[in-house]
Design a protein around this nucleic acid. Structure first.
Lengths: 230, 230
DNA sequence: TGTACATCAGTGAACGCGCGTTCACTGATGTAC
DNA sequence: TGTACATCAGTGAACGCGCGTTCACTGATGTAC
């Protein structure tokens, strides 16, 4: 009676749930998340519409599950590359950046489901927020090792004028709860990594660069360079 | 018989078209672009559904018109601030940045209609591309004056190693047709401005920062600072 | 091993809804003589 | 200024569609003795 033991029925349930989600992703890839239809998925699986209600309470629960899986998948990719782990050890920021881009290109609509235009009225349940914090923890770890540790005491490093934004960061670091001792410069590096890569990635995925004749891969690499060596 | 003379009927037509678009924006602001419904708009105007077909061929034409208007509105804001003009003269990059943010905050869904998750299968007609080039021209003008003019000849400025990405930019500058003589560094500055500000803005508009307890305005200003003084 | 019962997957019919779009038609507004 | 005609705005009915979701029911699968 271990926790992982599954009755055949439970296994089957899980299988069908997976298949539903799989078809859902295919549908999203084709026509975006707003066009996701339970009936269409059922038809594609050779079942009748109402059958899906054995597996998902309603459409919203399915979408929430997809969002959760997307976050989970990205977090796992980050952890595999830069998490506290065996194997190749912790990855640096450039490698994390490439992991992010590879993950995004793998399924652009999945990326947009998380970071794109917000669905009106939708609020992510708390366990999803927790996953995104796992993700942030890996990023913060890489940032903390990429940045010189904070000088103890209020004496600023000579030659660098204190940035006003660092003060704001020092006061609002709840989002970085995984690294309570990271210096503001590390927090800032994480935000820079996130917002800049999101900027160049989402423009790429939306096709804005290819419409201009530019190579998105080069643009991305150039931006990564300027994040790690400012 | 001047071109601007309008018969009363033409004037009326235009008025109704404007009102339809107005209600359409309200609807988009409430539930996103994918929920836009001709019937709902008609009802809101006190008309019956089919009446709208006197003013728009179909739903797609209305959406295209909204996208065009959004681009036009942003381009006008840019031109008013930094275009070739009278008045206060040409604005610098920080001011353009604030114009962009103000415009985006005015109606986040309008911003996302242009720069958000792409609508599957939709391709912008050519006149819209033209408007976005107007917009880029203003940005490029500000970048060209913010950057030292190109050194004539292939001799690189000593002390700065040539960036591989600048070569790519020198080869692909069709998108910057308005400024055929701008140095690659200016082109690059424009791309940086665009992608970085889009990154921080779209995360703000999607609510990712407030969920973290950060002040988006400060984040934006910090990023603007690092664009103009690298 | 066999029987009796409970659990659960899936079906088909149905409800109510709103959508985009067409069509034939009425009534008002403008135009030409 | 008045009449005859053309133009155009808006209506109401209708078509076909797909959606999410409920409900009562059948049949298969598992469980307990």
């Amino acid at each position: 009676m271990t926790g992982t033991t599954k009755t055949p029925r439970e296994r089957y349930r899980q299988q069908v749930r997976e298949e539903v989600k799989e078809k859902a992703w295919q549908q999203i890839a084709g026509s975006g998340a707003s066009a996701l239809s339970l009936n269409a998925i059922a038809k594609q699986m050779g079942m009748s519409g109402p059958a899906l209600y054995r597996y998902f309470a309603n459409r919203d629960e399915l979408i929430t599950e997809l969002i959760r899986d997307a976050y989970r998948s990205l977090a796992d990719a980050f952890i595999a590359a830069g998490g506290p782990g065996e194997g190749a050890g912790r990855a640096g920021l450039p490698e994390l950046a490439r992991v992010l881009r590879r993950w995004a290109l793998e399924d652009p609509h999945r990326y947009f489901l998380i970071y794109g235009t917000p669905v009106p009225g939708y609020h992510a349940p708390q366990d999803i927020t927790a996953i995104s914090q796992e993700l942030m923890a890996v990023l913060l770890e890489a940032c903390a090792t990429a940045v010189p540790p904070a000088a103890p005491g209020p004496i600023p490093t000579p030659g660098t004028e204190p940035d006003p934004f660092d003060g704001h960061l020092a006061d609002h670091r709840e989002w970085a709860a995984s690294h309570p001792d990271a210096p503001p410069s590390a927090l800032r590096l994480a935000l820079t990594f996130w917002s800049r890569l999101h900027g160049v990635l989402s423009l790429e995925l939306a096709g804005h660069f290819t419409g201009m004749g530019l190579d998105p891969a080069l643009l991305f690499e150039a931006e990564v360079d300027r994040i790690v060596t400012p």
